[in-house]
Computed example of a mutant assay.
Amino acid sequence: MIAKLVATVLYSGLLKPAPGTWGTLAALPLAWLAAQGGPLVFTALTALMVPLGYWATVEVTKGAADHDPGEVVIDELLGVWIALLPVVWGAARAGVEVERLWPGWIAAFVLFRLFDIWKPGPVGWMDRRSDAWGVMLDDAVAGVMAAVGVVLLAGLAHAL
């Protein structure tokens, strides 16, 4: 089933323990691949993950009591890709390969996982929705918060 393949990010969400972390890790090489098209392609593909992830989440949770099962990790992919947007755009602006900004990749991963697990403020508000939008939006907001953190850390690193 295509929806399960998408929702679990190539079945990485079936790995235990911590399927969200596995899903986020699986999203990184996919992000690198998407980033090879440049920042506009990466941004467009990131935006495409919103309706694709919503659809896949609706499909795999249809009739289930749990609206946010652990194996659904397409939301983690969306969140970490949002967190990586400043890295992809920064690499393009600097005229370097995106992997050269590896500290940004680590910061995006760590900050995204932190905000996704901690669920501060608006992340928690979105998470409390009992539908597929809540599944997708809490990670999108965590990704935005992580992206801001990535920019702040990059600014700090370049100022030193």
Rank of each mutant, 00 (worst) to 15 (best):
L30C: 04
I74T: 05
T24F: 03
L30R: 09
L78I: 01
A44W: 12
Y54F: 10
W55R: 15
A56T: 01
A56E: 05
L30H: 11
L33F: 10
T57V: 09
L33Y: 13
L40C: 05
V60E: 10
T46F: 09
D68Y: 10
G63A: 10
Q36G: 03
W81L: 03
L52M: 14
L77W: 13
F42G: 12
G23D: 02
G70K: 15
T43E: 05
W55E: 12
T57S: 13
V72K: 15
G37N: 06
L25N: 10
L48W: 13
L30V: 07
A44T: 07
L28V: 03
M49C: 14
T43H: 14
V60G: 07
T61V: 04
Q36A: 02
D75Q: 11
D68L: 07
G70F: 13
G70L: 08
L77I: 03
P39Y: 12
A35V: 01
W55V: 09
G38D: 02
T43M: 14
L48H: 12
V41N: 12
W22D: 00
D75W: 05
G37Y: 02
L52G: 13
T43K: 14
A27M: 04
T43R: 15
P51V: 00
E76L: 08
G23H: 05
D75P: 10
E59P: 05
V80S: 13
W81Q: 00
V73Q: 05
L28N: 01
G70V: 07
W81V: 00
G37A: 00
V72M: 08
G63H: 05
V58K: 15
A26Y: 07
I74Y: 14
E71Y: 12
A27F: 07
Q36S: 12
T24I: 01
A35T: 03
T24H: 10
I82V: 15
M49R: 08
E71L: 12
E76V: 06
T43C: 13
G38M: 00
V72L: 10
I74P: 06
A34M: 06
P51A: 12
G23I: 03
E59K: 15
T21R: 02
L52P: 07
W22P: 00
V60P: 06
L52I: 15
D75G: 09
V60L: 09
V80A: 08
G63Q: 11
L28Q: 01
H67R: 11
G53A: 14
D66Q: 04
L33M: 11
A56R: 14
A26N: 12
L28D: 05
G38S: 00
A31G: 08
D66K: 15
L52Q: 14
A64P: 10
I82S: 10
W81S: 01
L77M: 13
L28A: 00
K62G: 05
G38C: 04
L33C: 06
A35P: 02
L25C: 02
Y54V: 01
E59T: 07
M49Q: 07
D66Y: 11
T57D: 06
E59I: 05
A56K: 14
L48F: 12
K62W: 09
E71T: 03
V72T: 00
D75N: 11
L77G: 10
A47Q: 06
Q36R: 10
V73C: 02
V50D: 07
T21N: 03
A65Y: 13
L40H: 15
